[in-house]
Amino acid sequence: MRVAVVGYGYWGPNLVRNFSAHPDFEVAAIVDANESVRQRASTEQRGIRVVADFEEIARDASIEVVAIATPVATHFSLASRALLAGKHVIVEKPMCASVAECQELTAIAHRANRVLMVDHTFLFTGAVQMIKQLAQRRELGDICYFDSMRVNLGLFQQDVNCLWDLAPHDLSIIDYLLEDEVVGIDASSYCHLNPGFPDMVYVTLHFARNTVAHLNLSWMSPVKVRRIAVGGTKQMLVWDDLDQDQKIRVYNSGIEYLPADQRNSMIPQYRIGDIYSPRLPKTEALAGVVDHFSRVIRGDENSILSPERGTKIVRILEMTQKILDGAPTAGRQVREPRS
């Protein structure tokens, strides 16, 4: 399948490299409106056509797949034109700038009978796949909480705030692992550089099955941290994505109470057990995304990066943004409408 990669900024070169390495794909074109970026692409990707006008790609019947890595405000326009031209599409996160755009884009994909996927790359990391296996095998027990810290000094974005830039990673991971519905949201934000454009955001999500997830998101931290703690009734774990040797540590620890008729007080019993670090595969997550995309197009797998999942993430982002903007429905009483 011949592929056009649209956008050759930060993520575009990674897409070109991974699509080029897959036996089912051939990168035939790169599209970017910026002349200096096109010159760089021509130098780095010799033999691949580099163009400025997306319509040239949309009209090219030999292009079967379009991968979009452009600012979120352009996702709907580019993806819809590609789908209407009969091409399969994978688009970077977040899927679109609004739920309405997501829903319309999903409908276009269904009518065109084309595959539309959202590149939530973290779902194909060895760490997330391992946590999913632990959860499915019930080794963690019932998941009680997620506590995520995703902070760094920058990178400041011009088209989205800190929430829309960083939260999609955590939201996609939590949605994949929990398969549950958000029933309440608490959120607060702080704007240190640009008024009305948060660079620090704190979000707490309340789920139907009584799980809670807390997200600490920031472009203002002096150090880079990518860490998630997952607490279960049987075991707990910490995933430190920057630790190259032991990304996941599983703790056989917890808190237990005696039955009410056997205790004289509410003092819990603390269980402190062993710690182990499971071995994780070293494969690149984006290579897994590209392979999954191929299998979904061929009809061999159901998508875990579906537009319905992408819409769910944008719905949570949109609701949280309303809270940060001071909407009258803000607070824990907000309930997520079901798709």
Results as ranks from 00 to 15, higher is better:
L237A: 09
S62N: 12
A58M: 12
N34I: 15
S339Y: 06
R227F: 04
E256T: 06
L324G: 11
L205S: 01
R137V: 03
V203C: 08
G288D: 11
A85Q: 04
F197G: 03
Q39M: 10
V89C: 10
Q136A: 12
V115A: 05
V6L: 08
I48M: 08
I143L: 14
R295I: 01
F122K: 13
N161S: 13
N113C: 10
Y257N: 13
T106G: 09
F19E: 10
I304W: 03
N252Y: 05
D159M: 08
G288F: 10
P94A: 13
I108C: 01
K132Y: 06
Y145T: 15
S36G: 05
D243R: 07
G232W: 06
Y276R: 08
R227K: 15
V27E: 01
P328Y: 12
D199M: 03
G12E: 06
K87P: 04
G273L: 10
E44L: 13
R138H: 15
E92D: 14
I30T: 13
L178P: 00
E64Y: 03
Q45F: 11
V225N: 06
M95F: 14
A73L: 10
D170A: 04
S189F: 12
Q244C: 09
G231T: 01
P195V: 13
G231P: 00
I297P: 01
G141C: 02
I143P: 01
A213L: 00
D325R: 10
T70D: 05
L280Y: 09
Y202E: 14
R150K: 07
Y276N: 06
T125Y: 01
F25N: 05
V296S: 00
Q269F: 07
F146H: 03
R2K: 15
V118W: 05
E44M: 11
V91N: 09
D240L: 04
F76L: 08
S20C: 05
V160P: 00
D241K: 10
V296M: 00
V230E: 02
P337H: 12
E284F: 04
I297E: 02
V290S: 06
S189D: 15
V151G: 00
R338D: 12
C96Y: 10
L286I: 12
E26I: 09
L215R: 10
V50C: 09
S265A: 15
G47S: 06
V65C: 05
I316P: 01
H75F: 06
A135D: 05
L286D: 05
I173D: 01
A107Q: 13
V201C: 04
G231C: 00
C162N: 08
D159G: 07
K282P: 03
A29P: 04
G141R: 00
A287C: 06
G310R: 04
